[in-house]
């Protein structure tokens, strides 16, 4: 695991050095360093406005008009899952999944990806005919059909109800285990971060404030308390 933030070794899939981004006079990211190893699942926590989404958008290359500096190295194959499923309403479910695929077997791959997220048979449906959870599963299929080396997810389950969210956690875990991309999950849900990630990072005032290993070897309740403390929630554990 590339927890040594200083090393720029070939082992890291993502490497970010001294990343600075600002909207107007206010700095949003004030020198962020981040490494993600191949296949590693990193969760990014932080209060609203701490720069989580700005960091993710910088990695996705979606911040053309934002001023800043620093070095960002990401693999060629990057997929993004947004908080809204962001399906084109005028395209069918399958059309949305294969959007931008140029190979001749795109349809077959799209169908396989839909089967993987449990949506076989809904290929011809319009997005508005699906439930919120189903729409987000289509968005997952769309990002994984590209076989990304890096999956960026910006609060992908934030708009879902609690039960659907738990099902989506299990699905995402299975999908990540099958495809092995490096993952950066932006979330405000501490439990989501602990259950899913190998490593949790807390971002505060545009800097990495805390970095902890998660996963099965770690005591979840003490990690949860520590993360909540770092996020400024002083609740009894």
């Amino acid at each position: 695991m590339a927890t040594n933030a200083g090393g720029l070794g070939p082992s890291s899939e993502v490497s970010v050095r001294n990343l600075i981004r600002s909207f107007g006079p206010k700095g949003v990211l004030n020198g962020v360093d981040l490494d993600i190893a191949p296949g590693e699942f990193v969760a990014l926590l932080g209060p609203s406005g701490c720069g989580k989404s700005t960091l993710l958008r910088a990695l996705a290359g979606l911040d053309h008009d934002v001023r800043g500096s620093g070095v960002v190295k990401v693999p060629e194959q990057v997929s993004v899952v947004f908080q809204d499923s962001r399906l084109l309403p005028w395209d069918t479910v399958l059309g949305n999944v294969t959007l931008g695929l140029r190979d001749h077997d795109a349809d077959a791959r799209g169908r396989r990806a839909l089967a993987e997220v449990g949506l076989s048979g809904r290929e011809k449906a319009w997005p508005h005919e699906l439930s919120g959870g189903e729409q987000q599963r289509v968005a997952l299929a769309r990002s994984l059909v590209r076989e990304p080396k890096l999956l960026l997810a910006d609060e992908p389950f934030g708009a879902l109800d609690a039960l659907t969210r738990l099902k989506m956690h299990a699905l995402l875990k299975d999908l990540v285990a099958a495809h092995r991309p490096a993952v950066l999950l932006v979330t405000h849900d501490v439990d989501e971060a602990i259950t899913l990630a190998d490593r949790v990072i807390v971002l505060q005032d545009g800097r990495v404030a805390l970095e902890r290993k998660a996963g099965s070897a770690v005591d979840h309740s003490s990690l949860r308390g520590e993360l909540l403390e770092a996020l400024g929630v002083h609740a009894a554990a």
Partner: peptide, 19 residues
Amino acid sequence: RYVELAQSLGLSRAGFLRR
């Protein structure tokens, strides 16, 4: 948001226009 999506999926100009 759809323009952003098209960018993140690496759509070509023609593909963006058509889809």
